[in-house]
């Protein structure tokens, strides 16, 4: 392929991926209610975003839910991975098979099936948040498991044995010899769980309390005829999330570069 064609392909794809979000971010700083009609600079959208109680509770709710789910999923997935790493081959096979199910399954089916089991059959009240947290954990934990497992396979098993021989208790040996070695896997499992929970619409819709909204469910309801004020405040939210993600990626890149240079 000619160099020029290659640059063109990259440029056009980036244009497609980024133009909508950048234009929307730009318009979030104006008083326009529609893309295309330019009016004056205004921070009104940002004021609305952080003063409207409905919007604040939706944002706080989403973040708290994501953190709770990520902590639980990481704990469960890490323990599961360590356990199945040391378990018999057959046990590990079964766990990995069951672990694949939520990964390949459609989110709609995951959400609906947990809803049928917990809310319809077991009659657990949606308002307790229990079905929501369990369902999102069912969605996220397999990914935490999958990020920890490769680290376990790479780690130096003899360190644990050495710690034990030197008189450490099993739990001390675990926290000093195994956990530090698999920490990068645990961290990336946690991050994956956070982003999955933040992005989830379907599982949340089927299991959430009626009065609770995540960003996804709120935005979808808002598109079914919301006030313009709310609509444009959501543009501001998009701009903020875009900025956070860009900063996170830049930080990750800088960190990786310095690590590479250190080596």
């Amino acid at each position: 392929m000619k160099k020029a064609v290659q640059h063109m392909v990259i440029f056009l794809t980036l244009l497609f991926l980024y133009v909508p979000i950048i234009i929307l971010s730009f318009y979030s700083f104006t008083s326009s209610t529609m893309i295309g009609s330019v009016r004056g600079f205004s921070l009104q959208n940002y004021v609305t975003l952080f003063t409207e109680p409905e919007l604040i509770s939706m944002m706080v709710g989403t973040v708290v839910l994501a953190l709770v789910v990520a902590v639980l999923s990481t704990l469960l997935g890490t323990m599961g991975a360590i356990g199945s790493f040391y378990a018999k081959r057959g046990t590990r096979g079964l766990i990995e098979l069951a672990n694949e199910v939520p990964v390949v399954n459609a989110d709609v089916v995951t959400g609906f099936s947990v809803c049928v089991l917990l809310i319809v059959l077991f009659r657990i009240d949606k308002a307790t948040y229990i079905p929501l947290v369990i369902a999102q954990c069912a969605l996220c934990t397999p990914f935490a498991y999958l990020s920890v497992m490769p680290r376990l396979k790479q780690m130096d098993v003899s360190l644990y044995e050495a710690a034990m021989d030197l008189g450490a208790t099993p739990s001390r040996a675990m926290f000093r010899a195994i956990i530090p070695q698999i920490m990068p896997g645990i961290a990336s499992g946690f991050m994956t769980a956070v982003t999955l929970s933040l992005d989830d619409y379907f599982v949340a819709t089927y299991t959430k309390p009626a009065t609770f909204d995540t960003i996804s469910t709120y935005v979808v309801n808002a598109t079914r005829g919301a006030q313009t004020q709310i609509k444009t405040a959501l543009w501001a939210l998009s701009a903020i999330i875009f900025l956070i993600v860009v900063l996170a990626v830049v930080c990750m890149n800088v960190q990786r570069k310095t690590e590479e240079e250190a080596q």
Partner: peptide, 21 residues
């Protein structure tokens, strides 16, 4: 990373942006 980055922005917000355009 630039191509994967949009994955981390909530999909309903991304679709809203595209929809406006």
């Amino acid at each position: 990373m630039i191509f994967v980055l949009p994955m981390w922005i909530n999909f309903t917000l991304r679709i809203t942006a595209l929809k406006e355009i």
